[in-house]
Design a protein around this nucleic acid. Structure first.
Lengths: 238, 238
DNA sequence: CCTGCCATTATGTCTAGACATATATACCTG
DNA sequence: CAGGTATATATGTCTAGACATAATGGCAGG
């Protein structure tokens, strides 16, 4: 045995993955404890910890105090989807970005939006719709409600040159959010703006962002037909 | 000043987030080095490292050797989407799961699939289609090609009781994969199986998984109308 | 002025040891 | 046997120090 030299935590991670993969440690199997592995690999326990913790974050392992570490029975793979600013998303694909503000008005939001933002009827909101284009072709229609109670500065922003999408990210950062992906038929305003017949299958992303429990904004992004969200999955994801 | 006692890395992470949020450290700002922060917080550098590294993984910070740590200019939020086994996805929502194998045949794959799997024409593949139902209603149509060159055991599995989806995960784990989400109009076989008119907007997930560079399988999951993928975003994601 | 080299420096990682915390299991009691 | 309690144990985290690595910014030379 030429000591394989498990020096760094990535080497150890690879070896653990190899054993899982080779069925030396089948799903559900409780693997040796950190001290035992550290002894075997000839490294400090902290190094083993680093490797195992990374695998646990990736969903490959399940760890519980005292119970030990076991190979996940259902390897719930996690796909991490990057949600960049729309301008960047377009420019990163090497296409020319163009932005056009369509409407901008202060109004009481419809009940559905009120509920999403957790507001009562009186709260004023800013309603902004816009079109982002790539190489001159419609790319995504943005339909956004901004809570003026949370972001009063928005009342003075005009959104003609900088999109609300971008303005909010640099002005009113959120602490957490909620996002859903869905397939829908293109509906009234968005269909014409995206120049496709009503009912055309389109990809829709709905997002709500919060700042410490106070809702900032809710937005519906209706993408032009053909849009796809791509992501990679697997241990390397982390 | 009552020493706020920054004992653990999560406390430090919260404080760093607070400063970013309060614009003490605006986007693009280079924050103090680890040693300085460790001194300020009265803890070891490793603890600061743990906190900052977690924030960098979440996309809040950008770190580069020698250059230091800066607040991300474009806070690329990352949404981590869990991709469970379909049976679990349905059962976790408290609905009754049902599975039915529709077709199963060994055949040379069409060119598109060959290209995706990186195979030459001669390689035999297993083509499996199935329907997963929730509470008796069609939930998702599975159209899968399995590379018998990589997973020869699949030739003996009949997939009548255990879906290929589940069988593969526990039998032929992958090292990495690729996933895309799209909106499409329901097409020929899937439309009838999901009992919706052709052209109905449906959510489609296409996935390819690999084992050390050898393709395992490619699958198209066509979900019944109304399906949504939901996820949370933000620092808490990690 | 431009180019290439080099020292400085901030992050990346490892070590060895310690204490904290959860929790499965054994044990003990009613 | 049921249920509560004690204990052993595996992971979680922190410390203090050290070396590794990369890359920036200045400096020297063409």
């Amino acid at each position: 045995m030429s000591g394989p030299a498990f020096k760094n935590w990535q080497t150890i991670q690879d070896e653990v993955l190899r054993r899982i993969h080779a069925r030396e440690w089948p799903p559900g199997h409780v693997i040796p404890g950190e001290v035992a592995l550290a002894r075997e690999f000839g490294c400090a326990r902290a190094t083993v910890n680093r490797a195992l913790r990374a695998l646990a974050d990736a969903g490959i392992l399940e760890r519980r105090r005292k119970a030990g570490t076991r190979v996940a029975l259902h390897p719930v793979s996690k796909a991490t989807v990057d949600i960049p600013v729309i301008r960047r998303e377009i420019e990163d694909r090497g296409r020319a970005y163009d932005y056009r503000l369509l409407t901008r008005e202060t109004a009481p939001p419809p009940p559905r939006v009120q509920a999403e933002l957790g507001l009562n009827g009186a709260a004023p909101c800013l309603h902004v719709t816009a079109l982002h284009s790539a190489d001159g072709a419609p790319y995504v229609h943005e339909d956004r409600w901004i809570s003026l109670a949370t972001v009063p500065q928005a009342a003075e922003a005009d959104f003609t040159t900088v999109s609300a999408n971008e303005w909010l990210l640099t002005t009113a950062p959120y602490t957490h959010g909620d996002i859903t992906f869905a397939a829908e038929g293109a509906a009234h305003p968005a269909a014409e703006i995206l120049t496709c017949p009503e009912g055309t299958p389109v990809f829709v992303i709905a997002r709500i962002t919060w700042d410490h429990g106070r809702a900032i904004t809710t937005v519906r992004l209706t993408y032009a037909p053909g849009y796809r969200v791509r992501s990679e999955i697997g241990p390397a994801t982390l």
